[in-house]
Nucleic acid binder design. Sequence first.
DNA 1: CATATACTATTTGTAGGACAATTATAACAA
DNA 2: TTGTTATAATTGTCCTACAAATAGTATATG
Lengths: 235, 235
Amino acid sequence: MKTGFTAITLADQVEEKIINFIKENNLVPGDSLPNEMEFVEMMGISRNVVREAMSRLRMLGLIQTRPKRGIVVTEPPLLNGLKKVLDPNLLSIGTIKDMMGMRIALETGITDFVFNNVTGADIMELEQIVSRQEAIGINNLSVEDEMLFHTKIYKIAGNSFILQFNEIMHPIFVFAKQNYESHFQPINIKLKEQDRIVEHADLLQLIKIGKKDEYRNAIKAHLQPYWEFLYNYNK
Amino acid sequence: MKTGFTAITLADQVEEKIINFIKENNLVPGDSLPNEMEFVEMMGISRNVVREAMSRLRMLGLIQTRPKRGIVVTEPPLLNGLKKVLDPNLLSIGTIKDMMGMRIALETGITDFVFNNVTGADIMELEQIVSRQEAIGINNLSVEDEMLFHTKIYKIAGNSFILQFNEIMHPIFVFAKQNYESHFQPINIKLKEQDRIVEHADLLQLIKIGKKDEYRNAIKAHLQPYWEFLYNYNK
DNA sequence: CATATACTATTTGTAGGACAATTATAACAA
DNA sequence: TTGTTATAATTGTCCTACAAATAGTATATG
């Protein structure tokens, strides 16, 4: 049985042609595109097909369309597509594991940026986050609590693309954490057996005393259990 | 003048509803969706609108559609959308700079993975790449030549998502490199004034002798000029 | 009985026409 | 000059029709 094959539709081709049209004519955000009927005539196809293609580009944020005004090129938000597609239910464990790996690489990789940019005010904010989390108790931390600390770290790094990427990865982290904890419940039992777990307080301390290399190792140790766990996990 | 506002169309809403339908019913790759006409009746809209929404999901790789068979959920390739949208002409310098920053963070961040996974065969392959590049001469390296070395590093890291991401970022790297070199031509003049440039041969040497921390600093030094350059660059 | 072939019905793919909704532009009025 | 109104152009939505592909069934064939 033939499987997986999907025909290339006219909409697919027209979508590509329109993207090429933008590139070949060096259009930049703010420039106008020909209107729907002009594309219809240019390509000898029906308006429906043009509209399907435009609808795609519109969703990606590559164009904006308004009655009478026509079609205008816009600066696309880069991660629109990824956001819509990133549902752990639809992804293989291998993919989820790779994404957690990417997250680890990213968060260790921004260490230099973090240490370059961090201010006294940042540290104060981190201290507040940590003390609030200690009040809650490490065993009761929700994923959102957990996220607060990391998001602040990303903000200090000062790269809005990375920040955005991290936000979008959130469902993956939720998935990894929930499944991890449902296996090693309660999580702290498992962790007490090992060397003491790396907590946010430890990470903050390393930032405060400027131990960059130790921080890099610590943040990795903080995240890696979830990644390693995914090796043995079956959905 | 009102600007930037784009109406929320029916297609936008239907797209969202279909995605929610998949999530709420816990559909996984291989499961079937209701066909077009069923959605038409469910939502009281025209078939055109449903088709626009489906066309979007199809583009993202979230579904496959075939006559008679209907609509089937598929595991989405995560970066379909990003790939279509990533054209340096359409992006602000700030965004491009952030993406280069992400690349630097990623490539430094995978250092641990690289050193954990690297084999003798990998090193031999890297040696071949480096010696070929030295034959060409560092000043004559095309972006594609340059890329060969880095792509191999990413492969060693063994994370296909990161590898894919790097491939998609290629246009950004081309843009950064070309503009950098058109400012400091020839690039080597500029670099000779500084401490000796970090070349692929140096990176390879550090891998061979297992100097992980030095490698991490070196790979950063190797890439950072492009990133810093973007600060002062105006399109 | 097994296997290949042809048929049928269903569903997506494409086309074209009609009208509604929106709004940039022009024309006009104050 | 400024504000209002009319207009015309363009996208947004709906509808109908048919083409193309194909899963499933029926039929023919060895």
